[in-house]
Simulated scan of single mutants.
Amino acid sequence: MSGDFDAIPVVDISDLRAADPMSRRAVASEMGRAAREVGFLYVRGHGVDEALFTDVLAAARAFFDQPLDVKMASYIGGSVNHSGYVPEGEEVFPGGAIDRKEAYDLNLDLPEGAGSAPMLGPNLWPEDSAFRAAASAYYAAVAELARRLFRGFALALDLPEDHFEAHRQAPPSQLRMIHYPFDPAAEDREGIGAHTDYEFFTILRGTAPGLEVLNGRGAWIDAPPIPGCYVINIGDMLEAWTNGAFTATTHRVRKVAEERYSFPFFATCDYETVVEPDPRLVPAGQTPRYPRLVSGEHLFAQTARTFAYLKARQARGELVLAEGQSSFGRPAAVR
Rank of each mutant, 00 (worst) to 15 (best):
V294M: 02
L155C: 06
L52D: 04
A141T: 14
R335M: 14
A257F: 00
V142A: 09
T242F: 05
G152T: 03
M237E: 05
Y104G: 06
H251Y: 06
L57M: 06
D109L: 03
A141H: 10
A135K: 05
R132Y: 05
R189V: 15
I76G: 01
Q302N: 11
V253Y: 09
S116I: 05
V256E: 05
G218A: 07
L281Q: 11
E102Y: 04
S327E: 06
P209Y: 05
L281F: 13
Y138F: 15
D270I: 01
L124T: 13
S23G: 02
Q169W: 00
A19Y: 06
H163E: 15
M22L: 14
A140Q: 14
R25G: 03
G218K: 12
D109Y: 03
P111Y: 07
L310V: 08
F200I: 08
G32V: 01
P279D: 09
D270K: 02
P283V: 03
A137N: 11
R25C: 03
W125F: 07
Y42H: 05
F328Q: 13
D128K: 04
V80Y: 00
A146D: 08
K311Y: 04
T249N: 07
E318D: 15
G235D: 00
S326Q: 12
P111G: 05
G121Y: 02
P118C: 09
G89D: 04
E112T: 12
F150Y: 11
D20Q: 08
R100T: 08
R205M: 02
E297T: 02
A133D: 14
